[in-house]
Every structure is written in structure tokens, then in C-alpha cells.
Design a protein around this nucleic acid. Sequence first.
DNA 1: ACCCAGGTGGCCC
DNA 2: GGGCCACATGGG
Length: 210
Amino acid sequence: MNKIEKIYKKLKEKYGQPSGQWRLWCKKRKAKKEREEIIIGAILTQRTNWKNVELALEKLKKEKVDSLQKIYQLGAKRIAPLIKSSGFYKAKAKYLFNLAKFIIENYRSLEEMKKEKTEILREKLLSLKGIGFETADSILLYALDKPIFVIDEYTKRLVKKEKLSENFSYHHLQKIFQENLPKDFRVYQDFHALIVIDGKNQQKSKTLPV
DNA sequence: ACCCAGGTGGCCC
DNA sequence: GGGCCACATGGG
């Protein structure tokens, strides 16, 4: 067992079977198992507290804007006021609309989208404005169950802490994780979820008085 | 009153 | 390839 796998095992022992915890942590997002909401959340959470994203998702739900189709119909201008709480809301409204438009016009549904080859899909997502590596990979992994490891701020902190690499470029870190783990989207989903849970846990203990 | 949060694009050198 | 800034809100 390599070092990466050991860390995965350790986190699993510490926090239990992750999917349950993950679901607990982002209840709203996973409870309904709405893949479209995962996609919407992936945009809204950019450089933003998850709490503020939740407020925006609730607002969208309240206004019955609960699908990519609806976002596509409404357009960016009408989406913007609904997602204010997530910050950068004018930009994010455009990004969301563009993404919804891309998916609806090219695939009509996520099931159809899923059939496209992962590498092609990734390229296409990355070509959209507002979708960078992390957002593209989050969509591929969590909304489409593609075996692509997501690198985010928490993952970088883990790499630093465990001294897994000196090179912190996105591509390099992604390569390290993917080469040292079975190519299984469930493993990637669970592991990344655990990294986030552990990261938030560390943050919390850091702010508490000693 | 500050400071931060699960990023991204545009511009500069 | 890397450094810096705008994008904006809600919570500690």
C-alpha cells in the first residue's frame, strides 16, 4: 500500500464510510441526489463559503429554479438576484447560464452528456468561461461519476502537510492521486470528500481556544 | 472594522 | 510560466 492509499485508509478509519458523512455534510446537495444541483453548486461555491452557497440554493429552490433547463430559460439577468448570497453573483449568473446552455443545447440531459468520452467532455467544459480545472473536475466526478480526481484548496493543504509533493501545480497533484489510487470514481469521490471533511475539522479546531 | 471563504479570467512581464 | 487584481456576499 502506498502513502496516498494509507492516508485514504486512515481518514476512512477516522471518519467512517465517507459517503454517509459527505451526505451529512452537504445534506441539501446530496439528500435529493440531484446531479443538476451539484453542477449549480460547483459554480456557486467558487471562492465562497458553503453556507452562502446554501442560501443561494435555497433561494433558487424557493423560486422553483431547480434545474438547468429552468436556468437556461430564465437567462443570466434573472438568475443573478437569486444567487446574490453566493458572492460574485453577476459573474456566476453568466457562468451558470452558459453552462446550462452548453449542456441543454449539446446533450439535452446529463444521461446523454455522460455518454461522451471523459477527456472530450473535460476539454469542452474547460473551454467555457467560468469553468476552470476544479469546477470542471467536480462536475465530472460528482455529477457524472467520471474517475477524475478533484484538486482543491483542502487537497493542497493535505499535500503540504503530508509532504506528498513539492510541486503544487494542479496537473501534477491530480497525477499523483490518480496514479496512486485505483481508477474508481467511488474511491475518488469518497477520498476527496474525506479530505474536505478533515480539512474543515482542522480549521475548526484551529479557531478554538487552546 | 477587518478578514476570510472548496476559483476563474484577464492582464502584465 | 508566474504574479496580481477584480469579481461581491455573509459570517466570525
